[in-house]
Simulated assay, not measured.
Amino acid sequence: MYNVLKLNKIAAIGTDRLGADYSCADSVENPDAILVRSASMLDMEFGSNLLAIARAGAGTNNIPKDKCAEQGIVVFNTPGANANAVKELVLAGLLLSSRKVVEGIEWAKTLKGNGDAVGKMVEKGKSQFVGPEIMGKTLGVIGLGAIGILVANAADALGMKVVGFDPFVSVPNALRLNPDVTLLKSAEEVMTSCDYLTIHVPLTPETKDMVDAETIAKMKDGVRILNYSRDGLVNADAVLEALKSGKVAKYVTDFGNDKLLCEENVIVLPHLGASTPESEDNCAVMACDQVKEYLENGNIINSVNYPAVSLPRSGDKRICVMHKNVPERISDALSGVTVVGMLTKNRGDYAYTIVDVKGDADADKLAAVDGVIKVRVL
């Protein structure tokens, strides 16, 4: 029996897939796995039984990934599960940034109580909300992962010229990109060539404040910037100054802070990117499937702190070894064991090895190897 702790509400369509061998609840002592959405785990202490944490979503800034790696705890996320939901909201943001829809709605509310005069007042006042069409304009997309590609392809279908950049774009993602989308050589080249800019990258020390006073100064006058990725990618002070000068025409973000709220030409949404029932279901299913596969078979899919390692089962037993990047020591410890399948991969300083054997293997001998963090026998 595996015990699974839920720190947030996780859709039953996901947890039901775990099956009868799992106890999944909001309060669990020393769980084998944790399912989480937005709850902060940064100050949590983890029990010795904990093997996996699955974030039902893409971002993992609420999880101490390095600490988990040191303790042999695999952290999973669910990339792509909420991609369509975010894509749709980005498309809404493109239109909101152009057509002054929000301002028009708020103004229309002020006409309440004017009876039959409302129609004439609307016709007289609507010119103050004129805004350009997006068709024929250039959209710059920085980050061509699961979300960025959907956004780029959708904008292309709407008649926009789309340029993009991603230094780490995968071959499968590149093949999904519409051929009309132009790939540029740098993020700066994208920023300087677009009328609309949307960012879809993780927040790291390298990407923090990637849109700041210096980069904004190189952009087109009247550029419209959208941030549905992470707070901290766009420097709030810089964008507010650029809005005052007219350098930036509009800033739309899913991540509000006190500086941005109620500012002219800023549209702040309350982190609605993945807030659809379909997205929540997709994330729950992917998170639970990944946890189940790891706990039962040792295969790692979509981890953010350990390498992706999957091996079809063979032999009598499977040994799973979390270790520092010293695979030769693992091989030495298996001397005399009949190995029928083995796969090792590393991610930075950490590595993971799956070994299928005939007969028994001395797990204690493996655990005693310098650099080994955790050993499981399945």
Rank of each mutant, 00 (worst) to 15 (best):
A157T: 11
L150H: 04
M210L: 14
L144P: 03
L177I: 03
I149P: 01
E133W: 05
M219D: 08
K220M: 09
A152E: 03
A187S: 15
I147Y: 00
D209H: 15
V223C: 14
D166Q: 03
S245Q: 06
S245H: 04
V239F: 13
A157P: 03
A174T: 09
K208H: 12
A238W: 05
L233E: 05
V141I: 08
G131L: 12
V171M: 06
R176G: 10
G246I: 06
E241L: 11
F129R: 10
A146P: 04
P172H: 05
A238V: 03
A155H: 02
A242W: 06
A249S: 15
D209W: 07
R176C: 13
T204S: 09
A155T: 01
K247N: 07
D180N: 14
P179F: 08
F255H: 10
F165C: 09
E189Q: 13
E188A: 15
V171E: 13
G148C: 01
L197W: 04
F255L: 04
G131R: 14
R176H: 12
M135A: 13
T192N: 10
T204H: 07
S229P: 02
G148W: 00
D231W: 08
T215Q: 10
I134C: 09
N173I: 01
K161F: 06
I134K: 02
I225Y: 09
P179M: 10
C194K: 03
T204D: 06
N235L: 11
S245R: 05
N178V: 00
H200K: 00
Y228I: 01
G232W: 08
V239T: 09
I225K: 11
Y196Q: 05
L177M: 12
A242R: 07
K220H: 13
A249K: 14
P172D: 05
A152I: 07
P202A: 01
T192D: 11
V130T: 15
G143I: 03
V130L: 13
F255M: 07
D209T: 12
A213P: 02
T253P: 12
P172M: 04
H200T: 03
Y196P: 00
A154Q: 05
S229K: 05
K218G: 07
D180T: 04
Y251H: 10
A155K: 01
T138W: 08
K250H: 15
P202D: 02
A213W: 08
G136R: 08
K161T: 12
T253H: 12
P167F: 09
A187T: 06
T207M: 06
G159F: 02
K250D: 09
T207K: 08
K247V: 00
L203R: 07
M210F: 10
V130Y: 14
K137Y: 08
A157K: 12
F255Y: 14
G232T: 10
A152L: 02
K250G: 11
L226M: 12
T253R: 14
